[in-house]
């Protein structure tokens, strides 16, 4: 009876959502703001990928806030789990030699792929967050595949701090040249080239390194809590 009532309620809500959204013309070029962005993005910012130019150029301050939120989450997790070890009876099985060899062979390829994604952020889909996540996945395969692997936390925090400083300095330089915070100060170049779109590649490289270092640190901290003393 209860399940029947829930199904009935879901059908009711679904029907009214359908009738509400059936008349909305999705995907048509009728919205004024979207049309304006699509027309003026390439001459104004020099980036071919409109999504990237909106995320980094028009709303760059928002991206800085997102990176800060991720940094706070990683720091809080490290503070809670600091020094926590697994129980000694948690025996760990070693990975097979095929997995170890595969992890060592695939790690450089995955890191190269992540670097490709965030360097070409203004040309192809993707950007700093996606590239950083792919680099963290590369660290994950090392953790899974190599016996008693531990990431170098000092190196990770230095990388993360340098990337964050680069982002903020790129914003302050806009103020120093008499413009707004995070406004473009570099020449735009030809749209479609790698070295174009002004400040976007620099910010995306910084975001990529920062996100990759943070997520790798999170994974290593979490993984060290399930491993017993060896």
């Amino acid at each position: 009876m209860k399940k029947l009532l829930a199904a009935f309620l879901l059908g009711f809500i679904g029907y009214y959502l359908y009738t509400a959204f059936a008349g909305v013309p999705f995907g048509e070029n009728k919205m004024e703001v979207g049309k304006d962005y699509l027309e003026t993005t390439v001459p104004k910012t020099g980036a071919v990928n409109t999504v990237t130019s909106i995320v980094v150029n028009y709303r760059g301050f928002d991206t800085l806030g997102e990176v800060t939120v991720l940094f706070l989450a990683a720091t809080g997790l490290g503070a809670i789990l600091f020094g926590m070890k697994g129980k000694p009876e948690d025996k760990h099985r070693e990975p097979s030699s095929i997995l170890t060899t595969g992890a060592k062979a695939l790690f450089p390829i995955i890191v190269l792929l992540g670097a490709y994604i965030f360097i070409h952020g203004h040309l192809t889909p993707g950007g700093g967050f996606q590239g950083g996540t792919i680099i963290a996945t590369g660290v994950l395969i090392l953790i899974l595949g190599i016996k008693s692997f531990h990431a170098n936390h000092a190196l990770l925090s230095v990388m993360e701090s340098l990337a964050g400083i680069t982002f903020v300095v790129a914003g302050i330089l806009g103020l120093a040249f008499g413009k707004n915070f995070l406004e473009n100060i570099l020449p735009l170049g030809t749209p479609g080239q790698v070295l174009s779109a002004g400040i976007i590649p620099i910010i995306y490289i910084a975001v990529g390194f920062k996100v990759g270092a943070e997520l790798a640190g999170v994974l290593d901290t979490l993984m060290s809590t399930t491993r017993g003393e060896e």
Partner: peptide, 20 residues
Amino acid sequence: VFIALSNPISSHALARAAHR
């Protein structure tokens, strides 16, 4: 090339895990 490198590793790990 990526599929040829990465897919056999996952199959091997899965077979070993199932046996264990």
